[in-house]
Amino acid sequence: MSPTPQERRAARHQLGTGSSAPAARRGPSGGRKKPITVDAIISTAFGIVEEEGYEALTMRRLATALETGPSSLYAHVVNKEDLDELLLGRLCAEIDLPEPDPAIWRQQIVGICTQLRDQYLRYPGISQAAFAAAPSNLDTLRVSEGMLAILLAGGIAPQTAAWAIDSLSLYVNAYSLEVSLANKRLSRSDDDWVVSRDELLRRFAALPDTFPQTKRYAAELTAGTVHDRFDFTIGLMIDGLGVAEIPREA
């Protein structure tokens, strides 16, 4: 008897995200189409997200792209959440994790966060899949394991390091989602919601005098690129680890 999707998922958590056995095609054209595998599902899903955005990725849309029915997909993935886990795992598998070095641990953590950001930005909106998801995929856990090792090598207390990974990951996810949403708006005709720095400066200058600080520091408030702000925030979070206090339980 063939393994169930749930059994395949459990095996992936133990052995990685390798390909499952291909499912046979049904119908008169079944023999002329490429067999469906986990790899084919993942690659096709990435293609949809890259071209149409994460919101367009549904099991039905994916089945259409693979010229099959949704039931054929469920022979390999449990549900949409399982698909999301596979996609995130594939992205995380491409992250280069350096050997922890106490002398440059800060730069190493920044490098991992930057790699993860760039992976997410390749596929608009895909970082949504990481929200409220408990990591269980081995490739995803590999990244958190690497980050934990680097923070511990840098002398960060274990509890602080554990929460730092959660905070850094949450920021990278949120940042990537915001940039993807802004880029999506810019690509549409109704791009008035994404304004230039010059337009922001003009709007701030036109504010009433009840906003004295915003008017005075408009240049500072609008300075830098989005990636400049990313680097600043990641650096700020990392620099604060040495003085972070873990709240005591009541």
Rank of each mutant, 00 (worst) to 15 (best):
S2V: 12
S2E: 15
R9P: 06
A10D: 15
L15P: 00
G16L: 09
S20V: 01
S20M: 05
P22W: 05
R26E: 07
S29C: 11
S29N: 14
G30F: 03
G31Y: 02
G31L: 05
K33P: 01
I36S: 03
T37N: 12
T37F: 04
D39K: 14
A40V: 03
A40Y: 02
A40K: 07
I41V: 11
I41T: 00
I42K: 04
T44W: 03
V49R: 05
V49W: 04
E50P: 10
E50C: 07
E51W: 02
Y54N: 09
E55A: 15
E55Y: 13
E55C: 10
E55I: 11
R60T: 15
T64P: 00
S71T: 09
Y74T: 11
A75K: 12
A75C: 08
N79T: 01
L83V: 06
L86Q: 06
L86A: 08
L86V: 08
L88H: 02
C92F: 10
A93P: 02
E94Q: 13
E94W: 00
I95C: 13
I95Y: 08
D96L: 09
D96W: 07
L97F: 09
D101H: 08
G111Q: 05
C113M: 13
C113Q: 09
C113Y: 05
T114P: 03
R117W: 04
Q119I: 00
Y123F: 14
G125I: 05
Q128K: 11
A132D: 15
A134P: 08
P135D: 06
S136I: 14
S136T: 15
N137W: 03
L141P: 01
S144Y: 04
G146W: 02
L152P: 04
L152W: 07
A153F: 09
A153P: 08
G155H: 06
G155Q: 02
G155V: 03
P158R: 13
P158N: 10
T160I: 10
T160R: 09
A161F: 04
I165D: 02
I165R: 07
S167A: 12
S169E: 03
Y171E: 01
N173F: 05
S176N: 02
E178P: 01
E178K: 08
K184R: 15
L186G: 10
R188W: 01
R188F: 00
S189P: 12
D191H: 14
W193N: 15
S196R: 12
S196N: 12
D198V: 10
L200M: 15
L201W: 04
F204C: 09
A205D: 15
P208I: 01
D209V: 00
D209H: 07
T210L: 14
T210V: 13
P212N: 11
Q213T: 07
A218K: 12
A219Q: 14
A219R: 11
A223L: 07
G224L: 08
F232N: 12
T233K: 06
T233I: 08
I234T: 03
I234C: 07
G235W: 06
L241A: 05
G242W: 00
V243C: 12
A244W: 08
E245S: 13
P247A: 12
A250Q: 11
